[in-house]
Design a binder for these strands. Structure first.
Length: 694
DNA sequence: CTGTTGAAATTTTTT
DNA sequence: ATTTCAACAG
């Protein structure tokens, strides 16, 4: 078989649009791909096609939203090339080198490039990376130093300051504009914020640390350098970008600098699934792509391979509420299937109970747990369900929300490693030092200053006289960091030593040390999987394991678990059965996001993303009654209203159910209205009784 | 200067 | 319910 017919054979599984996209030539290409339209398959085949056509895999850059997505794509590219090899023995396919494709998130790729070209932008190659909490900590230190804490009126808190800063950088907007547009209540603090940000930037430089935004900024400015920029540009022949609708202006500029004419540039996205504007992502990137690259080709994928037609009809109705969008009419050949279900639940308990029963029913029907998922707007929406699943011994993995790596004890332990890696990292250093009794912010700062003066040599601490309280631990601490800095043992050994040192501190500081200690044992396990400390520290902050269980090691094939996920973390994934819970106004859309029409529009798209994850069964639930307003310490309760994103014409496409009574058994004496919106149940009475002792 | 205690404010999504 | 802040004792 000749080369051309072999590649034809490989591409024959694609539909005509997908195929055109995969075989597109050099010019800039935008693929507008609706939910479930085989976007990944298209991208995978395009990469395979490029390699088959002789492009060096090491010169392909694949930018994805998560590391997992990149790994998955590279795995599939490899499989397509394998197939090609079988079909065409004589073909010159460089399959064994597929692993050389540069794949990862913008931030991960930035890290790789910046390590290599550190000198060109004046960075120490051993720079460490701050995650959001580290950045906020540093910002807070600066804020205190500038005396912005004791202002008459309260100064915006560190999280808000960080968000403002971040938006300026990522949206490439002036502070004044950002304040007016997104933080009007902070307008009066403009001058103070300027001082704060100036000082923050300087402090990061002193500490040789980069925050998430810096990774992009430095990459951007590296590309602007006449010599180094040219070197980086020349590294890549083809650049492919997934989830383009969730890139921000800074990222778009990076792409533009990598390929000013758009030669070799492919971007894929769906404007209807843009859900990251809080990270300054802008739909404008995808909408204006043809303007920025005048010779761009735009291809649209509309045939959905994921969901059944009844589900698609419902989701199409939902997205029709969007004000501005590229009209796409998704259709599927899978016309059979149940209509989606809308369940009105009495309260949160009923909702959890109903969902669990559905899940078990589907499992009995042959759908394993791992092909089912429960999705929700905010991480805490699943707490009750988690309790119920635990009670019933149903295994689950939760994605999104607080990550393993963000828990205090893990951050503590990592602080030692980070300090050893980069002795100028004051955030990590202070964190480790302040674990010792008798050492607080002031002494920690002094010690870090001594360390900086000595050029990062821990010997500078040898003569230091610790306060009495730290007397016993200090020599051990000193020996530990010196050994870590000298990297006397392998990485797992370093974690082990640190763990031994930290154990008594852990026991002293936390009520429940045992599970925490177990987490740290796990951390030691994963440490052995990394090449070196620097890599581990960077990769773990850039792409933290999405669920605690992910750390346990390679998944055992036959263990089955349900997926719980925030909608954001469910991006790009799909399941046979999907349950969207808490679909009530206030949760979807979130009360925090109803300030502007743009925000509400984004919440709509978020709901749309949730619904379109379902392949065969879709179930939307909302409780009528909440027993607590979030955060309220009274026992005030509230009534839930169905989300505004399910108007009548969408509702017609749903089956309706309630948890009050099995179907057909409604009490005839109840008026229609009461039956539809029950006010009271035995459960709620019991619950109110319980409040006297719980 | 640290560490503790009690009062007050604040709650989304994530690289 | 949890996190953050201010005040005070050692």
């Amino acid at each position: 078989m000749g080369e051309n017919s072999a590649i034809d054979e490989v591409l024959s599984g694609l539909n005509p649009q997908q195929r055109r996209a995969a075989q597109h030539g050099d010019g800039p290409l935008l693929i507008v791909a609706g939910a479930g339209t085989g976007k990944t398959a298209t991208l995978v085949h395009r990469v395979a096609w490029l390699i088959a056509k002789g492009v060096d895999p090491g010169r392909i850059l694949l930018l994805t939203f998560t590391r997992r997505a990149a790994a998955e794509m590279i795995r599939r590219v490899d499989s397509v090339l394998r197939q090609l090899e079988r079909l065409d023995q004589g073909a010159t396919v460089s399959r064994p080198h597929v692993g050389r494709v540069w794949g990862g998130t913008f931030h991960a790729i930035a890290t790789r490039l910046l390590r290599r070209y550190a000198k060109a932008v004046g960075l120490a190659p051993a720079f460490t990376i701050h995650d959001r909490t580290d950045s906020e900590d540093l910002l807070n230190v600066v804020r205190t130093e500038l005396g912005l804490v004791k202002t008459e009126k309260r100064f915006p808190n560190k999280g808000t300051c960080m968000a403002i800063y971040s938006r300026c950088v990522n949206a490439r907007q002036q502070l004044a504009e950002v304040l007016a547009g997104h933080f009007p209540w902070c307008k009066e603090w403009g001058d103070e914020l300027k001082r704060l940000f100036d000082a923050y930037v300087d402090r990061k430089d002193d500490a040789s640390v980069l925050d998430y935004d810096d990774l992009l900024t430095f990459w951007h400015d590296l590309l602007a350098d006449p010599q180094a920029g040219e070197l980086v540009r020349k590294r890549f022949d083809c650049i492919l970008v997934d989830e383009y609708q969730d890139t921000n202006l800074l990222q778009a500029e990076i792409l533009y600098q990598l390929s000013p004419t758009g030669k070799g540039l492919t971007v894929v996205g769906d404007d209807a699934q843009s859900i990251y504007s809080f990270r300054a992502a802008t739909v404008r990137n995808i909408l204006d792509f043809p303007k920025h690259y005048p010779n761009a080709t735009v291809l649209t994928l509309e045939q959905n391979y994921r969901s059944t037609q009844p589900i698609l009809e419902a989701t199409n109705q939902v997205i029709r509420l969007a004000k501005e969008r590229y009209a796409k009419d998704l259709w599927s050949k899978r016309s059979e299937g149940d209509r989606p279900m809308l369940v009105t639940c009495e309260d949160e308990d009923d909702q959890a109970d109903f969902v669990v029963r559905q899940i078990l029913g589907h499992r009995e029907g042959g759908i394993p747990l791992r092909r089912q998922a429960v999705l929700f707007r905010a991480s805490h929406h699943s707490i009750l369900l988690e309790a119920e699943l635990t009670r019933r011994n149903i295994p689950f993995h939760k994605y999104g929300g607080l990550k393993f790596i963000e828990t205090a004890h893990v951050k503590d332990l990592m602080a030692f490693l980070r300090l050893a890696e980069n002795p100028r990292d004051v955030v990590a250093g202070s964190r480790a030092l302040e674990l010792l009794p008798g050492i607080g912010p002031t002494k920690a700062r002094q010690l870090m200053a001594m360390l900086a003066d000595s050029g990062g040599d821990f010997a500078a601490w040898r003569e230091w006289k610790p306060p009495a309280a730290a007397g016993k631990l200090w020599p051990k601490f000193f020996a530990l960091v010196e050994d870590l800095a000298a990297a006397k043992t392998d990485l797992a050994g370093q974690v082990h030593r640190t763990r031994n040192f930290y154990q008594p501190i852990l026991e002293d500081r936390y009520d429940n040390p045992r599970p925490r200690a177990r987490d740290l044992e796990q951390l030691e396990q994963i440490a052995s999987r990394y090449r070196d400390r620097r890599t581990m520290l960077a990769e773990i902050t850039l792409d933290p394991p999405a669920s605690t269980q992910d750390l346990a090691g390679p998944p055992v094939l036959d263990d089955d678990y349900l997926v719980l996920s925030t909608i954001h973390s469910a991006k790009g994934l799909e399941w046979d059965a999907v349950y969207v819970i808490h679909a009530s106004d206030g949760n979807i859309p979130s009360d925090m996001a109803t300030g502007s029409t743009e925000e509400i529009e984004e919440e709509l798209r978020l709901f749309y993303v949730a619904l379109t994850r379902a392949k065969r069964w879709l179930c939307v639930g909302y409780p009528l009654r909440y027993y607590h307003y979030p955060g309220s310490f009274s026992d005030a309760h509230g009534y839930g209203q169905l989300t505004r994103f399910l108007p009548e014409r969408a509702l017609r496409l749903f089956r309706r159910a309630t948890t009050t009574a099995p179907e057909g058994e409604e009490d005839e004496d109840l008026g229609e209205d009461l039956a539809r919106e029950p006010r009271l149940s035995s459960r709620s009475v019991r619950k109110r009784t319980k409040r006297f002792w719980s």
